[in-house]
Design a protein around this nucleic acid. Structure first.
Length: 280
DNA sequence: CTCCTGTCCTGCCGGC
DNA sequence: TGCCGGCAGGACAGGA
């Protein structure tokens, strides 16, 4: 379930093996994932990778001639690196393979096909369908308490749902929304418009803290952001509340026989987790 | 504009 | 043992 920290970690891994190298060949194993593969996919052959970056949960691979190859991992997508000479045994759900001049091979595997691959130009990015409606990056100055207050002032949806809304702020998915609200001390069911300025401030700080810690965990638990099997980015972590229904939350001093421990509920069809003692 | 639900897709797990 | 339902969730479409 890649959210911003996982995508960021994948990008750092990709940057190490792709930057400066020339694409020799690209092949796709089917016509589409969530959307069709670009018709002009083959046009990236012969292009050199100039930069790897990230916008929201999208991986941006900048190429010569201002082309940008866009990859979104969806829910189940992963990228695997094979170094020169390493044997590649095609696996189920390998949908795209990119070969580089230096022998490096990148494989995009995605069982559930919620991911996507697209191709665009630098100048088309601001108006691009995928990017047009995205809110600010969580680490951008624009994502502030006053910005949030303004965005949420007319929204009665639960704050958990607003945090996951990519039009409001990008990169926060189901897991980090629960985690952020835990550290902000805010009940996920609170109406967005009911939050006070000090609470907005706490949320901004908590989102940044949670994402920063996760990115750091990715960097420190993986050698060069790559697992031993060549898979990029994913790493083991433990959560403060996520997935811990009935258990102690992080730093819990309660008798959970009395409190029931971490609560689980469904919001917008997704599981939320929170501590009813610490989050109000 | 915001809200709310359904949809896509496969793997996994628990219950019977 | 096998079948079935439910769940996992990122992003968008469409109707209210």
């Amino acid at each position: 379930m890649p959210e911003l920290p996982e995508v960021e970690t994948v990008c750092r891994g990709l940057a190490r093996v792709m930057t400066g190298n020339k694409i020799k060949a690209v092949s796709t194993a089917r016509k589409d994932l969530r959307i069709p593969f670009p018709r002009d996919m083959q046009s990236i052959e012969g292009q050199r990778v100039t930069k790897i970056s990230r916008r929201a949960k999208y991986i941006l691979i900048s190429l010569n001639k201002d082309k940008i190859l866009i990859i979104h991992l969806g829910m189940s997508g992963s990228l695997v690196i094979k170094n020169k000479g390493e044997h590649y045994k095609p696996a189920k759900h390998d949908h795209m393979v990119i070969d580089f001049d230096n022998g490096t091979r990148i494989i995009f595997n995605d069982p559930r096909r919620f991911g996507l691959v697209a191709l665009t130009h630098v100048q088309d990015m601001p108006r691009h369908k995928l990017f047009r409606h995205l809110g600010p990056e969580p680490f951008d100055k624009k994502f502030s308490a006053s910005y949030l207050g303004n965005k949420l002032k007319s929204r009665k949806a639960a704050i958990k749902l607003s945090l996951m809304d990519q039009k409001i702020v990008v990169g926060v998915g189901n897991i980090y929304a629960s985690e952020s609200l835990f550290f902000a001390g805010i009940d996920p069911r609170r109406k967005s418009k009911s939050l006070t300025m000090p609470e907005m401030k706490k949320i901004v700080a908590a989102v940044r803290k949670v994402l920063t810690a996760a990115i750091r965990a990715g960097g420190s638990s993986l050698r060069n952001y790559v697992q031993s099997n060549g898979e990029l980015g994913y790493f083991q972590r433990h959560w403060a509340v996520y997935g811990k229904e009935g258990q102690k939350c992080k730093g819990c001093r309660c008798d959970i026989k009395k409190t029931g421990g971490v609560q689980r509920l469904i919001q917008g069809g997704r599981a939320s987790f929170y501590c009813k003692i610490k989050q109000k």
